[in-house]
């Protein structure tokens, strides 16, 4: 990410991200009036802090504390042969039982849908959720599987070779979303 500066365009600022998450929290509570059955599962890496923040926002709305887990999808991905093994995978950390629960998967960017497919498979191996819903901070299009999000922070039209970069203070020290142009060598 050396050439950030030149062609990077900010599509969400830190306050934008805060407002967006607040809206998503409201949408979640509207769609799930009985929040006591909800669990939030962030997809490693950046889905995890987003899930935690959503949990906080929901608590601000209705006082209910929604449990948050972290889901690693590395071993469920379908691109092992292309990308090779990942030896820095963080472990899945879900300390609660998901059977019968409404699981809201949280990810930063919804793109091809392949990570979500992997996440659904991974979740199903951990138990039998009542429902699975999907929340994404951004939807950049280009789906390769019949997957759509239940909650979308922002739709950003991109070309396939553009890069969407999400930075979160828990991971990157700042909150921002950039789109950078196709790298031209």
């Amino acid at each position: 990410m050396k050439n950030d500066g030149a062609s990077a365009k900010v599509v969400l600022s830190a306050p934008d991200i805060g407002r967006t998450l607040a809206r998503l929290a409201h949408e979640i509570t509207e769609k799930n009036p009985d929040c006591s059955n909800l669990v939030l599962v962030g997809i490693i890496t950046r889905g995890v802090p987003l899930a935690a923040r959503l949990s906080e926002k929901i608590k601000e709305i209705n006082g209910i504390e929604i449990p948050v887990g972290a889901l690693d999808v590395t071993f469920y991905r379908d691109d092992l042969a292309r990308k090779g093994p990942n030896l820095n995978a963080s472990p899945t950390n879900i300390t609660f039982d998901i059977t019968g629960k409404t699981v809201i998967l949280v990810d930063d960017v919804l793109f091809t849908g392949r990570s979500i497919r992997a996440a659904i498979d991974a979740i199903m191996d951990l138990g039998r959720p009542g429902k699975i819903q999907l929340a994404a901070l951004l939807d950049r299009g280009h789906r390769e599987l019949p997957i759509r999000a239940d909650y979308i922070g922002k739709n950003i039209p991109t070309s396939r070779d553009e890069r969407v970069m999400v930075k979160l203070r828990e991971v990157d020290g700042e909150d921002a979303v950039f789109v950078t142009g196709a790298e031209n060598g």
Binding site: Y76, P91, T92, D125, G127
Partner: peptide
């Protein structure tokens, strides 16, 4: 990486599709 796999052996469904 092996530590990452320990959790799998503790599950009810001890299987990954990898």
């Amino acid at each position: 990486t092996a530590n990452r796999f320990v959790e799998v052996s503790e599950r009810e469904i001890k299987k990954l599709p990898t």
